[in-house]
């Protein structure tokens, strides 16, 4: 029996865009995530994935509904909920080492915990690049640093918004394995937004499928495949086909709206 960590209840978020149109980015979304779970959120562009993740992070507030983490309402950003952006979020004026340390410095605990910096550099396999600046390392390395910077604060949950979206497929597979390794080490709860069905299947315990206009959860699939998973195995491929079909259906359902 696992413990409930994150609870999202009837959350709605509406934006008014520059043409004064109402955009229902999220409409009455409910979701719970257990402690230590790996959940992926997948869906077509504009279905509110980023919006949902930002609400969990506390970077945005909903018009209605509640979000709680371990029973505490989420009102503002907190190091207990780490956030990894798609790309380009490392501080360019800090070295790899200092970027990772900035997680500790921001909380004001650098003096007590600085020994963790070397530990995380080793963990993400960037030994030797401590003194490099962000523009001197590759995109894949940069994302590892972003992840380490968030994890060094030992968050209860790590929220990742398409962290591998800008990477080539080799680097991506590499980073996926690294992410699994980090997850199984600390059992940090992971909430991953992705466009990539393979990625979601390879990594997650559950996959949340969303549909746009208004942003809603259409289906939640539990993935029972044993780990380590093989991307070419029959069951994996069958599930992949199933999810793709659901995604197509999901976008087909919005087709009429385009016609209006």
């Amino acid at each position: 029996m696992s413990n409930l960590l994150l609870s999202i209840e009837h959350v709605s978020r509406t934006y008014i865009d520059s043409n004064d149109n109402r955009v229902d980015a999220l409409a009455d979304v409910s979701l719970t995530v257990d402690d230590g779970e790996f959940v992926s959120i997948i869906g077509p562009s504009g279905c509110g994935k980023t919006t949902l993740l930002r609400l969990i992070a506390g970077l945005d507030t909903p018009q209605s509904g509640t979000l709680t983490l371990s029973g505490e309402p989420i009102t503002e950003p907190d190091p207990n909920r780490g956030y990894v952006f798609q790309q380009g979020s490392l501080f360019p004026w800090l070295t790899v080492e200092k970027n990772i340390a900035s997680g500790l410095k921001a909380r004001g605990v650098y003096a007590e915990e600085k020994h963790h910096v070397a530990e995380y550099i080793e963990l993400i396999g960037l030994t030797g690049f401590e003194k490099s600046y962000p523009h001197q390392i590759s995109g894949g390395m940069a994302q590892r640093v972003s992840i380490a910077r968030a994890l060094i604060n030992r968050p209860a949950a790590l929220l990742l918004d398409e962290p591998m979206g800008a990477l080539d497929s080799f680097t991506r597979a590499d980073l996926q394995d690294k992410l699994l390794e980090l997850w199984s080490r600390d059992r940090t709860t992971m909430v991953l937004v992705t466009h990539d069905v393979d990625e979601a299947l390879y990594l997650s315990d559950r996959i949340v499928i969303m549909t746009p206009r208004p942003g809603k959860i259409s289906e939640i699939l539990t993935i029972e495949l044993p780990r380590p998973r093989q991307r070419s195995e029959a069951e994996f491929l069958a599930l992949r086909g199933k999810i793709l079909q659901k995604l197509h259906l999901a976008s087909a359902r919005v087709e009429p709206e385009y016609a209006i």
Binding site: A57, G58, L59, E76, P77, D78, P79, R81, G82, Y83, F85, G88, S89, F91, S102, G103, K105, A106, R107, G108, R149, A150, N153
Partner: peptide, 20 residues
């Protein structure tokens, strides 16, 4: 993004001002 990253890392105003 830099401000948001810093906030999710636990930064308060002085950090956002002087370190970002």
């Amino acid at each position: 993004t830099y401000f948001e990253v810093a906030k999710t890392l636990g930064a308060k105003t002085p950090y956002l001002l002087f370190r970002v």
